[in-house]
Amino acid sequence: MLKSRNLIEPMDLSVEELDEIFDLAEEIIKKPSEYSNICAGNLLATLFFEPSTRTRISFEAAMLKLGGKVIGFSEPTSSSIAKGESIADTVRTVSCYSDIIVMRHPKEGAPRIGTMVSEVPIINAGDGGHQHPTQTLTDLLTIRSLKGGFSNLTVGLCGDLMFGRTVHSLMKALSRYENITFILISPQELMIPEYVRKEVLRKNGIKYEEVRRIEEVIDKLDILYMTRVQKERFFNEEDYVRLKDHYILDNEKMALAKEDMIVMHPLPRVNEIAVEVDNDPRAIYFKQAKYGMYVRMALIIKLLGLD
């Protein structure tokens, strides 16, 4: 059993609870048929106050594969919100006839309101730029399954490290394990914010390095986590054009990397990973999406208390 009834931020879960979820996810991967009916009779509601097709489909697929059913809305225009209903009232109503709620909202902390009134567990599927815990669980399960654990890893994080919440959450989650080294690869403008340096890195005594180009460090990495570098984040077009190639992964750069390095990406990608890299066995970002569904399956089972 998990201590918390809800999942609002990744740190709601202890290292032990995470392991329980990942153990279950790996069990499901091995014997999917044993779990194909475990959630029969349960209804999952997806309340998406802001559209995110990818995340919603992943949750719906997870529930359907467990034999449960799904209801919900995918954007606020079609919901009662458009008529001015409060978040609290919407969640309270839906919790009367569903067994678990997945909620995405553009405002920070919105799922917390849900937990105050809901009769059933709430999973945060993203609240503005704030938290997206199931993305972090996805990343962690991927790492555990493909690298055998979380300790003694050198993890390169590349791209927009200033605004990228997935990167901050992943760093925070990984900082709980032994002997992690981060190599932070970003343009000057998009370096990690000072509070992450202070609260995550220095506070936990984590080794880290900040560099400008993938080529400089790719040979040292066990994991390369790529994120998008958005044009709008730069002060001017010139800088963007000058710098962007340093943050695009292609076969030439992959040739410098270790044989067993893995390339991760939260998807969707734009152009930061050249399509030619997709055929490299080290490119596991589509597999990562699959792990995302499995970890959501495990989480749903756990929160419903069906394990």
Binding site: I87, A88, K107, E108, A110, R112, G129
Partner: peptide, 12 residues
């Protein structure tokens, strides 16, 4: 924080 849910949810 203008991005905080308390900026839009009455009664929170």
């Amino acid at each position: 924080n203008p991005r905080c849910v308390t900026s839009i949810e009455r009664n929170a």
